[in-house]
Amino acid sequence: MMVIQIVLVLFFLMVILKVLRRFRAGDIKGIEAVGWVFFWLVAVGVVSNPNSTSFLAKILGVGRGVDAVIYLSIALLFFLVFKIFVHLEKIERQITRLTRQDALDRAQKYENPTHHS
C-alpha cells in the first residue's frame, strides 16, 4: 500500500465518523447519513483497491480507472458547488425579505414632517 492510500483511507474513515456524529446530533437525516456513509465507503474501497475502477473506465471509454474516478469527481464537485451557489442565492433573497419586513414593521407611522421650514 502506498502512503497516499493509507492517508486517504484514514481520512475517509474520519469523515464517516463525523457523519455518524452529525447524525446522532440530529443535524442530518437518516437517509442522508446512509447516503454519505455509503459514498465514503465506496471511496475507501476505490482508494484501497484502485483496480476496482477499471470496469468503470471500460464502460466510460476512459484509459484508466483512476482517470474515470477523477473525471466523475470533478463533475460531481462542480454540480455540488453549483447547487450550493443557487441555494446561497435563495438564502440571500430570504434574508433580504426578512430584513425588509422587519425594517418596515419597526418604521414609525409616517407623518408629513412640518418641524422644519
Partner: peptide, 11 residues
C-alpha cells in the same frame, strides 16, 4: 429631521 427606516443587517 428626516425619516429613517433601518435594515438590521447590510443588504
Amino acid at each position: 429631521g428626516a425619516v429613517v427606516i433601518n435594515h438590521l443587517v447590510n443588504r
